[in-house]
Simulated scan of single mutants.
Amino acid sequence: MIRKRSLGALCGLTLMLTAPSAWAETIRVTIEKLVFSPAEISAAVGDVIEWDNRDVMAHTATAKGDFDIVIPPKKTATLTVTKAGTFDYICRFHPNMKARLKVQ
């Protein structure tokens, strides 16, 4: 009887350790010297994108029709990804700042 319980507990532990995680990931993008870094990121639906603006001016992460996040100077801002696709985004204030978000 003890042996069956131990085996059951071991199997349960094995399943817990090998099962995929249901936790969302936080993907960080740094903004510094008018550049998104990295310029291309991949995420899954439910993940959080966090932009860390290290510049002394405000920026945005804007994908026309999909999201428009304002990131104040020396602050962070986040977006929870809600749909799959490829999203090219820019800073509305500095349109030469470009990046891409790929969501599976």
Rank of each mutant, 00 (worst) to 15 (best):
M1K: 10
K4G: 07
K4W: 09
K4P: 01
S6C: 08
L7Q: 10
A9P: 00
A9D: 06
L10W: 06
C11S: 08
G12L: 04
L13A: 05
L13I: 01
T14G: 03
T14Q: 00
T14V: 13
L15A: 14
L17E: 03
T18H: 00
T18K: 01
A19M: 08
P20V: 13
P20G: 14
P20Y: 09
S21Y: 02
W23C: 10
A24F: 07
A24K: 08
E25I: 08
E25Q: 14
E25A: 13
T26S: 13
R28L: 05
V29I: 13
V29T: 02
T30L: 09
I31H: 02
E32C: 08
L34V: 07
V35R: 15
S37H: 05
S37F: 03
P38R: 06
A39C: 04
A39L: 04
E40Q: 15
E40V: 14
I41D: 01
S42G: 13
S42L: 09
S42V: 09
A43K: 00
A43E: 03
A43W: 00
A43N: 03
A44E: 15
A44R: 15
D47M: 02
W51D: 01
W51F: 15
D52R: 11
D52H: 14
N53E: 08
N53Q: 11
R54L: 03
D55W: 03
V56H: 09
M57A: 12
A58Y: 09
A58L: 11
A58I: 06
H59C: 07
T60W: 08
A61Y: 12
A61S: 14
A61F: 09
T62E: 12
T62F: 15
T62D: 15
T62I: 02
A63M: 07
A63L: 09
K64V: 10
G65H: 02
D66S: 12
D66V: 08
F67R: 01
F67D: 02
F67W: 05
F67A: 00
D68H: 14
D68T: 06
I69A: 01
V70N: 12
V70P: 01
I71S: 01
I71A: 01
P72I: 05
P72L: 13
P72G: 14
P72V: 07
P72Q: 12
P73C: 08
P73D: 11
P73Q: 12
K74F: 06
K74S: 05
K74I: 03
K75N: 10
K75L: 06
K75C: 08
T76R: 10
A77Y: 02
A77I: 00
T78P: 00
L79I: 00
L79H: 04
L79E: 01
V81A: 01
V81E: 01
T82K: 14
T82D: 12
T82F: 05
K83I: 01
K83F: 07
K83R: 15
A84F: 01
T86F: 00
F87T: 03
Y89M: 04
C91A: 04
C91T: 04
R92F: 06
R92V: 07
R92S: 14
N96V: 11
M97H: 09
M97N: 05
M97V: 07
M97E: 08
K98A: 08
A99H: 02
A99K: 09
R100A: 07
R100S: 13
L101R: 03
V103A: 07
V103P: 04
V103Q: 03
